[in-house]
Amino acid sequence: MSKIYRLYSRQNVPAKLEEVWQFFSDAKNLLTVTPPQLNLKVTNEVYGATVYAGQVMTYTVKPLLRIPLSWMTEITHVEPLQYFVDEQRKGPYKLWHHQHHFKAIEGGVEMTDLVHYRLPFGLIGTLANSLVVKKELEKIFSYRYKKIEELFGSWPGSKMEIRMK
Results as ranks from 00 to 15, higher is better:
L137W: 02
L7W: 04
H97C: 01
S158M: 12
R66S: 12
F102W: 06
H100R: 09
R163Y: 11
G108V: 02
S9K: 15
I67V: 15
Y8C: 06
V13P: 01
L127Y: 08
I124N: 03
G108Y: 02
W155N: 08
F84N: 00
L65W: 13
H101F: 09
P92A: 14
G122F: 07
I105S: 07
K159C: 09
N12Y: 13
N44F: 10
W21D: 06
I75W: 03
E45S: 10
K62L: 02
Q99W: 10
F84T: 00
H116P: 00
Y52Q: 10
G48F: 08
G157C: 10
N129W: 00
K103T: 11
L119N: 04
S130L: 11
K3H: 14
L95H: 05
A49S: 15
T32N: 11
D113L: 04
N12L: 13
L31V: 15
N12T: 14
M164Y: 13
D113V: 02
N29E: 08
G157M: 12
S158Q: 15
H100N: 10
E150C: 07
N44G: 09
E149C: 15
G125D: 08
P14I: 13
K146S: 13
Y117K: 02
K135W: 06
Q37T: 09
A15L: 07
T60Y: 02
E79K: 11
F84Y: 13
L65A: 12
N39R: 15
P36M: 03
P35N: 04
I67E: 05
P156Q: 14
F102G: 00
I75Y: 05
S25K: 09
Y117E: 00
I148M: 13
F121I: 10
P63F: 00
W21E: 05
K146T: 05
Q88W: 04
N129M: 02
L17P: 06
L40T: 09
P68Q: 06
A104M: 11
F141L: 14
P80R: 05
P80N: 06
N29P: 07
L30A: 12
K16H: 14
Y145S: 06
L17W: 11
P120R: 05
G108P: 00
K146I: 00
K135A: 11
A128T: 07
V33N: 07
Y117A: 02
Y145Q: 04
T112P: 01
W21N: 07
M72Q: 15
V115H: 05
E87Y: 01
N39Y: 05
R89I: 05
T126Y: 01
M57R: 08
T60W: 03
I4Q: 15
L38E: 11
I4K: 14
T32H: 13
A53R: 08
K146R: 15
R144P: 03
A104W: 01
M164F: 15
Y47V: 11
Y8P: 02
M111D: 03
V46H: 02
L131A: 10
H101Y: 11
R10C: 13
D86H: 03
R163G: 00
L81W: 05
M1T: 13
P92V: 12
Y5K: 10
D26C: 09
L119A: 07
F141W: 08
D113S: 09
L38G: 04
M160A: 12
L31A: 12
H98E: 06
H97R: 13
H101S: 11
V51I: 15
L38K: 07
N39A: 14
F23P: 08
G48C: 09
M111I: 14
V42R: 07
G122T: 04
